[in-house]
Write a protein that binds this DNA or RNA. Sequence first.
RNA 1: UCAGUCGGCUGGACGGCCGCUCCGGCAUUUCACCGAAAGGUGGCCGGGGAGGAAAGUCCGGGCUCCAAGGACAAACGGUGCCGGAUAACGUCCGGCGGGGGCAACCCCAGGGAAAGUGCCACAGAGAGCAGACCGCCCGUCUUCGCGAAAGCUUCGACGGGUAAGGGUGAAAAGGUGCGGUAAGAGCGCACCGCGCCGGCGGCAACGCAGGCGGCACGGCAAACCCCACCGGGAGCAAGACCGAAUAGGAGCGGCGCGGGACGCAAGUCUCAGGUCCUGUCCGGAUCAGCCGUUCGGGUAGGUUGCUGGAGGCGGCGGGUAACCGGCGUCCCAGAGGAAUGGCCGUCACGCAUGUGGCUCGCGCUACAUGCCUUACAGAACCCGGCUUAUAGGCCGGCUGAUAUG
RNA 2: GCUGCCGUAGCUCAGUGGUAGAGCACUUCAUUGGUAAUGAAGAGGUCCACAGUUCAAUCCUGUGCGGCAGCA
Length: 116
Amino acid sequence: MERLRQRADFLATATGTKVPAAAFVLQARKRSDEGPVRFGFTVTKKIGNAVERNRVRRRLREIVRHAKAARMCAGHDYVLIGRRAALTHTFARMAEEFEAALRRMHPEWQGNTSIA
RNA sequence: UCAGUCGGCUGGACGGCCGCUCCGGCAUUUCACCGAAAGGUGGCCGGGGAGGAAAGUCCGGGCUCCAAGGACAAACGGUGCCGGAUAACGUCCGGCGGGGGCAACCCCAGGGAAAGUGCCACAGAGAGCAGACCGCCCGUCUUCGCGAAAGCUUCGACGGGUAAGGGUGAAAAGGUGCGGUAAGAGCGCACCGCGCCGGCGGCAACGCAGGCGGCACGGCAAACCCCACCGGGAGCAAGACCGAAUAGGAGCGGCGCGGGACGCAAGUCUCAGGUCCUGUCCGGAUCAGCCGUUCGGGUAGGUUGCUGGAGGCGGCGGGUAACCGGCGUCCCAGAGGAAUGGCCGUCACGCAUGUGGCUCGCGCUACAUGCCUUACAGAACCCGGCUUAUAGGCCGGCUGAUAUG
RNA sequence: GCUGCCGUAGCUCAGUGGUAGAGCACUUCAUUGGUAAUGAAGAGGUCCACAGUUCAAUCCUGUGCGGCAGCA
């Protein structure tokens, strides 16, 4: 999984479309090139102390790792902003929410995948 | 057994599936991808992978750079009983002094207020080399009453004595007792306190006993200050190496040369700067621009610093202890938008609820279900401390009370 | 990583070792036919928390909590 590392990438992605969920907010932005999908994670200090912030980021990362790659479009940057509910919600429920958020993010792809 | 106090340890266990990162080995190693470059990423196997506080950043060091001839001082900041430990410390250990507690034990902190400056509100008569408000006593005068008188007694005024008692205050001119006195008072005596002197014990802080002095010297220096000791500054984003584009610097080569007027333009006319060769004139070169190329500095970026160390463990020796010495053994996290994880199963612990048993009751115990899967909390150059947070569990020393033998 | 500042009434801020104030806001009364303005009176405080120094702490010292700002 390619990771976003530069602050400029995060700022650029923040201008794209946003899809809120209970445990996170999903942001996406199409890049000009057709490179691989890249992911970034943002967990602010408002969420909690360092232990809780680390835990939110790790759970979100595992959700992305287990998600179906077909939903994600190449040449896009995604940013997941953690919320405090990511500490307590069950893993299966959060994975479901992530799939739903990807469907809302790319409605034109829903038809393609159902046909395929 | 109960209550207390001090110290130490621990901080869930086992397993399955899927991942992350570092190290080592093998393979690839003229390979593939990203990048302008520096450089980075990519396979398989094995091994390692958060804490007692990793936290707060309150101190002390190592390390690195900067500054500085050396030492001292000034300014500023810090520390402060004595001795020891240590690389060092504001830390630790042992002892001294004061306070609290029946005790185990706990808490506090230098000297100087007779070097100087300053503050001590309110209350109170008097508060800094301080004081007679009430009171007590004496004398004179007056007044009430008793009395034959001497005298006693009551009210008041004036003069004086007095620091015992009352009252104010955080603090009131050493404290308690006896004597003494008109009443009192270190006025005298005893004990305690205080000061001075020399003696003894102790490395020292200090302690012990003795003599002398009738007491002179209130508190605050976490108020200024004096004394002694310590401190050059910055911090791994330190520093080192590699190194685009753009702008700027230097060298070389080529082309070109400033201002004004007229003109659509080509061009024409006119005026002319700095430096050098020459002091002046003339003449010449060159600069006031552009392009190319080379060089050095250096930004973004990359690599490194980066983990073997005042290191851990075991037993031995020295020391009351903190700690030290030597021996054996082990290698034990190194990320970089930041790895050390996600999901699941079983068990242990804990909590809650229900049911059964024991019990007057508190409660104890067995089973079932549910919850938390643990409290506080995440390395960021590395160590030694301090402080703060912390569910539950375990071990040991000591003290007091009670019971039994 | 390093450094500085702040925390006082509902809000914005003074303040000093000796029982804590200002402006706005709030309540009541007066004024007006009524409202505003104005005038008078009043209420409201763990001086961020805990220890220590002091006779006495909002102030001095230490520790903690929260907030703001700066440098590299």
